[in-house]
Simulated assay, not measured.
Amino acid sequence: MAWSTADIPDQSGRKFVVTGANSGLGEQTTRALIAAGATVVMACRNQDTANALAAKLGERAHVEKLDLADLASVRAFAERVGEFDVLINNAGLMAIPERRTADGFEMQMGTNHLGHFALTGLLLEKVSDRVVTLSSFMHQFGRLNLGDLNWEKRRYLRWNAYADSKMANLMFGKELARRLETSGSTVSSMIAHPGYADTGLQGHTESFMDQLMAIAAKTPMVQSAAAGALPTLYAATSPDAQTGLFYGPKLTMVGPPHVSGYNGKANNQGTRNALWDLSEELTGVKVL
């Protein structure tokens, strides 16, 4: 039988931090967790949409300001948050025009990977159960250039930059699992991806791809945001989810949660170590 939100164990008394909880996958993840009894800290940049959603979800939804494209905001958020059970690194940007974060990072790498890397490191001592980091099927096309992680020396290619950031997410989640286990920690690290889900993320490329993806969203090859959130929810709540594994739709792009295949480059220990060291250097946050 396919796993669904009906299979989420009772989450009463448990607290989650979800980045980008105000829309798309983050909203659906938050809705499902609240319905299961959890308390959710909605860590969002857009306070207006976050507060509007929290008002609908009730007193167990708490909004906190977090801009992953600004390390000062990440640090301030981490200082305000108390102990909790699960961190869900969900927020992300996809294939946007070239922009820079407050700290000068390429916006997709800075938000999707470096912001979450710093956030995880600053919060790790407060997490009691697990960390879930979202990657994407697009990680398959990631070709990390650690000599130019932030696209300062090359012509910017938005889809390549996105794929790189998602490969970084996968490598980080897997390496975090290994290092937590080696350190003797009982905290787990899982990675998830939504397949092809209609989340609104697709409408910000500011290119002809926005129209193409709007058309694709009406076809059977695309699932709803609620369905796309299921791998994340499985990784975040199921007692059967295992540290270091990558969860996605069973049919790659659509379907119920299942252990997902991935690009074997994510297993390269040398690259993972180098990415980890570079991420610590760039963010100024030491993780494990």
Rank of each mutant, 00 (worst) to 15 (best):
S4L: 03
T5Q: 13
T5A: 08
D7C: 12
F16H: 01
V17C: 04
L25Q: 00
G26C: 08
R31Q: 14
A32E: 10
A32P: 00
I34P: 05
A38C: 09
T39V: 03
Q47S: 08
D48P: 02
D48I: 10
A50S: 06
N51G: 12
N51M: 10
K56Q: 15
G58E: 04
G58N: 07
E59G: 06
V63R: 01
V63D: 04
E64A: 15
L71R: 01
L71C: 04
R75G: 15
R80G: 11
E83V: 12
D85R: 02
A91P: 00
A91R: 01
G104E: 07
F105I: 05
Q108F: 07
T111I: 11
H113W: 06
L119R: 01
K126S: 03
F137T: 12
F141N: 14
G142F: 00
G147N: 14
N150W: 06
N150C: 04
R155T: 13
R155K: 14
W159Y: 15
N160D: 15
N160A: 15
A161I: 00
S165E: 10
L170F: 09
M171Q: 07
G173R: 03
A177F: 07
L180K: 02
T182N: 13
G184M: 05
V187R: 07
A192G: 08
P194S: 08
G195T: 00
M209L: 14
M209E: 13
M209N: 05
Q211R: 14
L212T: 13
K218G: 05
P220T: 06
M221H: 11
S224F: 07
S224A: 07
S224Y: 04
P231W: 04
P239Y: 03
T243C: 10
G244Q: 02
G248A: 08
P249E: 06
T252C: 01
G255M: 01
P257I: 08
G261N: 13
Y262W: 07
K265L: 13
T271L: 15
N273E: 15
L275M: 08
W276Y: 05
W276Q: 09
D277T: 12
L282N: 11
L282W: 05
K286D: 10
